[in-house]
């Protein structure tokens, strides 16, 4: 058991190490380095030299990688090119804002997804299932920027209920942020809820068809008692991993949603730093977003392991 946990953590660390290599090598082999891409036409003579010195680009690549990695582990990602301030300071408020958005979406999304998933599974192919399933399929297939745009058009422009875009400084306090984030949270929660509800639905359906549930029905266990005691505990366990993957997958979608709503989170920083050709920040973002992905998956694996006694004796499938 302990061995398995340690093994999973080690695998996660190896993945992150490879991610750091990929981002480093990737930015290295793509044409242009941090200085020439940032300075563009002014990339010659004194200015280029100064930039190279500032970023330490005049030493060999492997030395730069080692020093970058050593600093990155300590939370120091160097200097951003465009803001001319430590990347650490740029990232801090952005991470906080993104966390607010993500956790709000998760807190709203998970209960709704559970209810919708269970309802659609128990009334499979009946009216509630057909109606809810149609809506969830729409919500999960339509691109984020379309659902967000439609939300703005309907709720902010036609009905004038809420502000359409977020106009707050990056380092605003939590309570000032709250009224501004309702629409972005709805946009993100909608897609996430739809995905999770589908997973819960199919998981519950699978368990309902299993032999022990059939046995319980034959034995005459009351329907709702059977649902809560036998079906749900078994059906929701595999959903943990899927929920984790959905959350991690949303990292990409959040970029688009944050841009649509002008929300000052990590996603918009991705776009900003790439538009500004700020490669040091891009590298830092890649490693941070990858760490979030790896840790969410790790957490989900460990949770499944804790909650499922059968897996304790088995080797985890990778």
């Amino acid at each position: 058991m302990l061995f398995l946990i340690i093994k999973r953590i080690l695998l996660g660390l190896i993945t992150l190490f490879i991610v750091s290599l990929i981002t480093f090598v990737g930015t290295e082999i793509l044409p242009g380095d941090a200085c020439t891409t940032y300075l563009e036409r002014q990339a010659f003579g004194e200015q280029l030299e100064a930039c190279y010195r500032r970023l330490g680009l005049n030493v060999p690549a492997y030395e730069r990688y080692v020093s970058w990695a050593v600093n990155a582990i300590q939370g120091d990602f160097g200097y951003s090119l465009s803001g001319e301030m430590p990347i650490k300071e740029v990232l801090g408020p952005r991470i906080k804002n993104s966390l607010v958005l993500a956790s709000a979406a998760i807190f709203i999304g998970i209960p709704i997804a559970l209810i919708l998933g269970i309802v659609t599974a128990l009334w499979r192919d009946k009216l509630p299932d057909v109606a809810i399933s149609t809506v969830t399929i729409f919500a999960m297939t339509i691109p984020e920027f379309i659902s967000a745009t439609l939300l703005i058009l309907i709720i902010a422009i036609w009905l004038e209920w809420l502000p359409g875009i977020v106009i707050v400084p990056t380092d605003v306090s939590f309570f000032e942020l709250l009224p501004n984030i309702i629409l972005p949270v709805i946009a993100i929660a909608m897609i996430m809820t739809a995905h999770m509800a589908r997973m819960v639905r199919s998981s519950v359906i699978q368990v309902m068809a299993s032999e022990y549930v059939q046995m319980a029905i034959l034995k005459g266990v009351p329907y709702w008692k059977m649902v809560f005691k036998h079906v749900l505990p078994n059906a929701l366990l595999p959903a943990i991993n899927v929920v984790a993957l959905t959350i991690a997958w949303l990292l990409g979608g959040v970029v688009v949603t944050e841009v649509v709503f002008n929300y000052p989170g990590l996603g918009r920083l991705v776009i900003e730093s790439i538009s500004n050709r700020d490669l040091p920040t891009v590298q830092a973002l890649a490693i941070i977003l990858a760490s979030i992905y790896v840790s969410i998956n790790l957490l989900a694996d460990l949770m499944t392991l804790m909650l499922n006694p059968r897996l304790k004796t088995l080797q985890i499938r990778k």
Binding site: V19, I22, L251, G252, V255, V270, V282, A286, L289
Partner: peptide, 24 residues
């Protein structure tokens, strides 16, 4: 190979795509 695939999976595709497109 699977470790490398895992590593690529954990980088958000949008970041990698944007980087490639903006440079190439």
């Amino acid at each position: 190979v699977m470790r490398i695939v895992d590593a690529f999976l954990s980088i958000p595709w949008i970041l990698a795509m944007l980087l490639i497109v903006s440079l190439l």
